[in-house]
Structure formats: structure tokens, C-alpha cells
Design a binder for these strands. Sequence first.
DNA 1: TTTATTTCGGATAAATTTATCCTTTTTATG
DNA 2: CATAAAAAGGATAAATTTATCCGAAATAAA
Lengths: 144, 144
Amino acid sequence: MFSKACEYGIKASIFIAINSYNDNRVSPKEISAEINSPQAFTAKILQALVKHNIVNSVKGAYGGFEINKEDIAKIKLSQIVTAIDGDQLLHGCGLGFKVCDEEHPCSLHDQFVFIRNDLRNMLENTTLELLAKDIKSGVSFLKL
Amino acid sequence: MFSKACEYGIKASIFIAINSYNDNRVSPKEISAEINSPQAFTAKILQALVKHNIVNSVKGAYGGFEINKEDIAKIKLSQIVTAIDGDQLLHGCGLGFKVCDEEHPCSLHDQFVFIRNDLRNMLENTTLELLAKDIKSGVSFLKL
DNA sequence: TTTATTTCGGATAAATTTATCCTTTTTATG
DNA sequence: CATAAAAAGGATAAATTTATCCGAAATAAA
């Protein structure tokens, strides 16, 4: 479903959000330790999230990654997924056709559109705030 | 969502089904021409489908790939997807955790289970017969 | 301004997926 | 039985994804 990079990106964003609520910047080292991901690869993914203005980075001593507190409730999972995996999953054809719509549907189109739309709605209605809260309250977890 | 191999596998299965209704065996060459896929790679995927008893192969002159007519209505998309991509998509965690369930849910679990279950239901309720009929009636297409 | 710290970014490597090629095996038919 | 046709299967290559390493650039603080 999601690429490894995207899985890491989602987990990292949640961890950064949690820390940002406490005005605490985190490093790739802390992030990868927390979400159980390769450090250097995680750093690359963070760069992408910074480029897409999802995460903010501060260089130099006492720097690290953070998310504006006011933004945490606004950032949708769909933004993270699109930033890392592109928009094929949210908008593309299930059988990989370049063009596939009601007018010219692939064999799976009628069955697939509902799934894709539900997935997109879920990702567009799930904010970092929502995910971070469940972690903080101990309802869900970020690593084994 | 699906791998390239899986996309080819689904398309190939539909094409074989359509031809099997007419007692016509097809070769990797015909299949890849019809579904716009690399021939040798498609042949490999067919081997996997044969191993999983989804498609039947007949070697030698006048041989080729076919599906028992009576089976076409019984073969579900979920079988093809699982045969080629494994069962991670239908049963795995959205964030890639080995264990993730109601007892010990990942951050995305509650939102993701509905999507995954809907996807699985769709794949389990979509038969080759259904897909083949829409192609034959001209409702949907197998290539651009 | 110097220093220590930290992200950025390029180069490279490993692993996996996608794709090709060629030989072997099987088998229907003449 | 000989032959031609076709799938099976192994080896290899290309492309993409995943992952590592290291020097450059930026920056806060002493």
C-alpha cells in the first residue's frame, strides 16, 4: 500500500508532532530510534517533508525538526503520503492505466473507485493531531 | 497499491478467461500483446498463476494457457493478488508493523482497518467472470 | 569570531522489482 | 519415432527503492 519511505514519513511526522507540543525539536537520530527506521534514510525523508512545508527544520546547535503547533491539527495524512509517494495511490487507476475514468473505465474501475475514494477520504480526514493524541494517551503505538 | 506484476497478472487472467469461454488457449505472446505488457515478464507471472492453480497450462503444440470454464466464475481477484503480491495488502498493517491489531494497534489502525477490509471484500467478491463480462460487452477495456 | 552542532545534499551501495534472453523439458501431431 | 511448438526454468541485466556515508553549509552559543 504505502512505500517504506512513506511509512517512515508518517511515523516520523507523528513523533515530531508529539514533541512539538512540548516545544521540543528532535533529530533524525532520536526519530529513527523512536520509530525503528534507518537513520540516514529517515533523514532523507525528512528533507522531503521539509521541502513540502510539512515539517520545519532548524539547522545548527539546538536545532532539529519541529512542526508549528498551530499546524499540527491542519496537516492531513494525504499531504504526507502525496509528498513522499506521489498521488498515484489517491488518484490513479487500480490497474495502472494512464487514463481511466467513467468515460473510459478499466476492467476494475467500478469496483476500485469506491476503495480509492474511501482511502483518499480517510487520508484527507486524518490529521497529525488525531494520530498524535492516540499515541500520547497510550491508545496506540509507534513501535513494537 | 498493486505491483506491476500483479496488474499484469490480473489483466492476463481476464484475457485468458475471455478466450477460455471460446475454448481458445493463448500464448504469452498473445497475452502481452493484448494487455500491453513485457512478454517474458508476463510469462513468469503466468508460471506463478499456474503454480497457484489459478491458470492451467498445456505444453507442446497447440498448447497455451487456459482456465477451466467452470472455474472462471469461482476465481476471485483476491486469489490472484495473493498469489502474486502475497497477503500483506489484504491482511497487513498500514504502517508495516509485524503485529498490529485491536489489542495492540498502530497509530493508523482504527482508520486503516475499514479501508483494508473494504478492499479485501471487494477483491473477494470480484470474480474473473464478472470482469470478463464487462470486457466482452465493451463496457470496460484491457488496454489503451 | 570561533566552535560545536545540526541539517543539507551528493555519491554510492545494497536490495528488490521489473524485464530480457536462452536452454531444457514436455507434448501433440505428422 | 521425429519434429515442431510451446511452457518451464535458470541466468542475467536494468530500473527502482531502500539504505549508507561523508563533506558542505548553516547557525546558535560561548
